[in-house]
Design a protein around this nucleic acid. Structure first.
Length: 136
DNA sequence: GCCAACGTTGGC
DNA sequence: GCCAACGTTGGC
């Protein structure tokens, strides 16, 4: 199983909206690195859902419900989408600030390549962030 | 195939 | 709202 981090501007597509819909087609990715990451996703892989710009925090856990297929929102055959379903909302959102201050999370793409919208996560990083969120 | 111009993202 | 970082485009 692999772990990922997916970013969305809450203004465009928030976690709450995601939960409301119960499923999301992750479209609009127009970046090769991000696309390659999406193509590597397998059904059941877990992803942290991050709010960029507004909030700047990890708010929930999502899971891949459908592996990549051609992006129906464009005729351009280069782009793909994947589907996600919500797994759990984190009891406590983990802010970018907190991530940056955590020595074990310094290698995250979120820290190093802040513009990458779909990034791989190590299992340790995923577990660490989830553990932080469930701490009291 | 290089590189300048341009557009976009996202933190601050 | 600004700007740095970075990706993409297009002329040569």
């Amino acid at each position: 199983m692999n772990y990922w981090l997916i970013k969305s501007e809450p203004f465009k597509y928030s976690w709450d909206h995601f939960v409301e819909e119960g499923q999301s087609m992750w479209d609009g990715v127009r970046n090769y690195q991000a696309r390659n990451n999406m193509m590597a996703m397998k059904t059941g892989d877990q992803a942290l859902f991050y709010h960029s710009n507004e909030g700047k925090e990890v708010v929930g856990i999502a899971k891949v419900s459908k592996e990549h297929y051609p992006d129906p929102t464009t005729d351009d055959p280069r782009w793909v989408v994947v589907n996600f379903v919500p797994v759990a909302k984190l009891p406590k959102a983990i802010s970018l600030k907190q991530i940056k201050q955590d020595p074990t999370l310094q290698d995250m793409a979120l820290v190093k390549h802040s513009r990458l919208s779909v990034a791989p996560l190590k299992a340790e990083e995923f577990d660490h962030i989830v553990a932080l969120a469930y701490e009291t």
